[in-house]
Design a protein around this nucleic acid. Structure first.
Length: 791
DNA sequence: CAGCCTAGAGTTTTT
DNA sequence: CTCTAGGCTG
């Protein structure tokens, strides 16, 4: 290994380090509370910092790094500091730089598990049978490859889809299992026992392609360390201190990775919060954090419990909720902040009204001049976003959606990348296959198949095969010409790669390949945006010294540029909100089945419920000053209106700290009050009627789809915006209280018209509920306010 | 080979 | 309901 830092002596007296150490209580330590300070100053040996939400976790981490550097314990290049996301890594780098100055620039080992692993692997690729210019596949490439492998085995790809295999393989990799390590019982679950075999075949394919997937980055590192102890020892020497952020999110592979590296000096500090572990479904093992003291005997455990973020009521609410979980290390958050406003809970008739209530609140805040960037709407599932967006567009409140497809996952970026990959490494078959017929060149399945056959027979890459095949008569003239042109173009581009600025080269490639033109001709709504993204890609290219380093950056680091500093409300999933905070937080959709998610309950029972509860806890603790929860009695799921009960989590909140703001609607109130009754105490829903199914049954009582669909347009106008700024629920309550509303204005036999179902005749009347035989839609039960007299 | 149409599915997401 | 992937037809 050539890295000079390995053999560099420790700072000597008189160096920068000792000067800093000589100063009493260094400036960076000031303002830390005693626990934080302990977490910073316990430099040697294993340390576990249990940092509750808003307790200054990042501050501890960055100050600790500053402390290690300033006291001369380590050079920046001797500190291994791992995060999960690039965002976290970036933030940490910035904050360390603020503390210690430009020395922090030299922190080559501050990064994500994956980027650090990639770096290690590029150095030692040959030891795990790779070339150092290996490509990193994304999920899409991965699945395409799986499909090929599955088909090659002669398995029906429909019954055993590639993405399913990808899921299995991913979870094996998460657990650090190579093909040979997969328990036979598990490898059997896919394709009648072929799972393990397919995994092995897939790994073989990757090796031939000189490619790795995300999981391999970790896995190959494990192999590297295990099979080359001298190399590992070398890194033990180098990494004097190891820091880990969000430790509760580590999976088994990451845990093993850390354990191997920490073995040497045992100077490992993990910071995390078991109450914020929300990624169990993708392999995170809360156990890693629960087991820390056992794995690292003699560990110093520090609890950070003083919260600097939220007001009293909010914190008390969150604390009470999370206290219901059993599998936790136990922390009690406290604040010295004022009690503030109570947390509110509002019931709405349906999800549209819920959106309306939230937008009303936001508009009110906006008119008071509050900063919309301090407002967030956090949802359980992305499907909830659309309705919120529609509503905000309707009232003209600016918003931004956080999350969604990442920059490099967009088709146009991946296509452009594939072109560049082919230019840089003509043997990249996956990239070649991706763009061979994009834009359309008349090179379809038949041509690809031929190339594949040729490649398999000769051991050539697809590009080489193409070059050979165009010299033969095997292809029809049309296809042959097209393919020849493509192959020649790539030769030309590759030839220029040396001499040209990569940004220019990319532009040239995209232009000459006809790719840009393809989108220019496209008239779909998002074509302009895609061209814009391509421009962005070209622009960012020039920030890199060369194409390969750019490609690495894009596959591992690049994320969507959510720039744009305008004041906007943020909409995102609860998962995406972890680590963020806002003055005001809206939490819609607290309903059984949605949150906690029925699926989490069905698939993981109590563990699933507890993870959902932690997710709720994450949501609650995002708020600094104002926290507003909502539930709707009716929600459209997969296009069907379903009625739902308020979430059990609502029942679990402390009455002293929450306020049920609006008397919920008549129905809503029934639901809220009755929910304690109706729900069973246990969570195992297997023997319990699922919420949504019960909702189906209830539906009859309140009219099937009819009433609610009418809500969409006529309904909204009818009560919502029309009747003088009134709160929706009040009006709806009137509509629903059949008994007190008196009789309907309709008589049996009357002809009526319904916005959704069209014309029909009234069959019977029950209060304000009508049974109508619609001419087209058949017999439906609807509320009279949704129909008009006709003919 | 390309465009249209139909059938099926449909949490949470980073790297 | 809405999207996507794959199948079928021109």
């Amino acid at each position: 290994m050539s890295d000079h830092t390995t053999s560099a002596p420790l700072p000597r007296p008189g160096g920068l380090a000792s000067r800093a150490a000589a100063q009493p209580a260094a400036g960076y330590l000031q303002g830390l509370n005693p626990e934080q300070r302990l977490a910073v100053e316990a430099t040697d040996g294993p340390v576990l910092v249990l940092a509750g939400a808003g307790t200054g976790k990042t501050r501890v981490l960055t100050t600790r790094i500053a402390h290690l550097i300033a006291t001369g314990r380590a050079y920046p290049s001797q500190i291994l500091s791992v995060t999960f996301t690039n965002k976290a890594a970036r933030e940490m780098k910035e904050r360390v730089a603020n503390l210690v100055g430009p020395v922090a620039e030299g922190m080559p080992w501050l990064g994500t598990f994956h980027s650090i692993s990639a770096k290690l692997l590029r150095r030692h690729a040959e030891l795990v049978d790779l070339r150092s210019d290996f490509t990193i596949l994304d999920t899409d490439d991965q699945i395409r490859l799986m499909k090929q492998v599955i088909q090659a085995e002669g398995i029906d790809e429909k019954r055993w889809p590639g993405r399913m295999l990808a899921g299995f393989i991913d979870s094996w990799k998460n657990r650090g299992l190579a093909p040979k390590d997969v328990p036979p019982g598990e490898s059997g679950v896919f394709a009648n026992g072929k799972g393990g075999k397919l995994y092995a075949a897939y790994q073989d394919r990757l090796k031939t392609l000189n490619a790795v997937d995300f999981g391999d980055l970790l896995l190959h590192c494990l192999t590297l360390f295990r099979e080359h102890p001298e190399l590992l020892a070398n890194y033990h020497e180098r990494f004097r201190y190891i820091l880990v952020d969000e430790y509760q999110d580590t999976n088994v592979a990451q845990y093993l990775w850390l354990r191997l590296l920490a073995q040497g000096r045992r100077n490992i500090a993990c910071v995390g919060d078991d109450d914020q572990s929300i990624y169990g479904w993708r392999g995170a093992e809360v156990d890693n954090i629960l087991r820390f003291e056992h794995d690292f005997p003699g560990a110093t455990v520090v609890r950070l419990e003083r919260n600097y973020r939220s007001t009293g009521h909010i914190l008390a609410t969150a604390a009470k909720l999370i206290a219901r979980n059993e599998g936790r290390l136990g922390k009690t958050l406290r604040t010295e902040d004022e009690a503030g406003e109570k947390v509110t809970i509002t019931g709405a008739w349906d999800s549209q009204e819920e959106a309306r209530l939230i937008s009303d609140e936001i508009e009110a805040m906006q008119s008071k001049g509050e900063n919309l960037s301090e407002v967030a709407i956090l949802v359980r599932i992305s499907a909830q976003m659309r309705e919120m967006e529609e509503r905000l567009i309707h009232v003209g409140v600016p918003y931004r959606v956080i999350g969604g497809p990442r920059f490099y996952e967009r088709a146009e970026i991946r296509d452009a990348m594939a072109y560049l990959r082919c230019v840089v490494s003509p043997t990249d078959d996956l990239a070649f296959e991706r763009i061979v017929n994009v834009p359309k060149r008349g090179l379809g399945d038949a041509t690809i198949q031929l190339l594949h056959n040729h490649a398999r027979a000769t051991g050539f890459s697809l590009m080489q095969s193409a070059r050979a095949v165009v010299e033969t008569e095997e292809l029809k003239p049309k296809a042959r010409t097209a393919l020849r042109e493509l192959v020649e173009a790539f030769a030309r581009w590759s030839g220029r790669a040396e001499s040209m600025q990569q940004g220019e080269l990319a532009e040239l490639v995209l232009e000459e390949s006809g790719y840009t033109e393809m989108w220019q001709k496209d008239r779909s709504a998002d074509a302009a945006g895609r061209l814009e993204n391509l421009k962005e890609l070209v622009r960012s290219l020039d920030e890199f010294p060369d194409l390969p380093s750019f490609l690495e950056h894009v596959s591992l680091v690049m994320d969507a540029d959510s720039g744009d500093g305008g004041a906007r409300v943020s909409i995102m999933t609860l998962h995406a909100a972890k680590g963020l905070e806002f003055d005001t937080v809206f939490l819609p959709g607290w309903e059984e089945g949605l949150f906690p998610s029925q699926r989490a309950l069905d698939e993981n029972g109590r563990a699933g419920l507890e993870e959902e509860r932690r997710l709720a806890h994450v949501g609650l603790t995002r708020a600094r000053k104002r926290l507003k929860l909502y539930f709707a009695s009716n929600r459209r799921i997969h296009g069907l209106w379903q009625s739902s009960l308020p979430s059990r989590f609502i029942d679990e909140l402390p009455e002293d700290h929450v306020e049920v703001v609006q008397a919920p609607t008549a129905y809503g109130q029934g639901g809220y009050g009755a929910s304690r009754f109706e729900r069973m105490e246990s969570f195992g829903s297997s023997y319990q009627t699922p919420g949504w199914q019960r909702a189906q049954e209830n539906k009859a009582k309140f009219g099937s789809g009819g009433n609610s669909s009418g809500f969409s347009e006529a309904g909204q106008r009818g009560f919502g915006s029309g009747g003088g700024r009134q709160r929706g629920p009040v009006l709806i309550e009137g509509e629903l209280t059949a008994k007190s509303t008196g009789t309907s204005a309709f008589d049996p036999g009357a002809r009526v018209f319904h916005v959704k179902f069209g014309p029909g005749s009234v069959a019977s009347v029950d209060g304000n509920k009508l049974t109508v035989d619609f001419d087209k839609a058949g017999r439906k039960m609807v509320l009279d306010s949704f129909v008009q007299k006709a003919g």
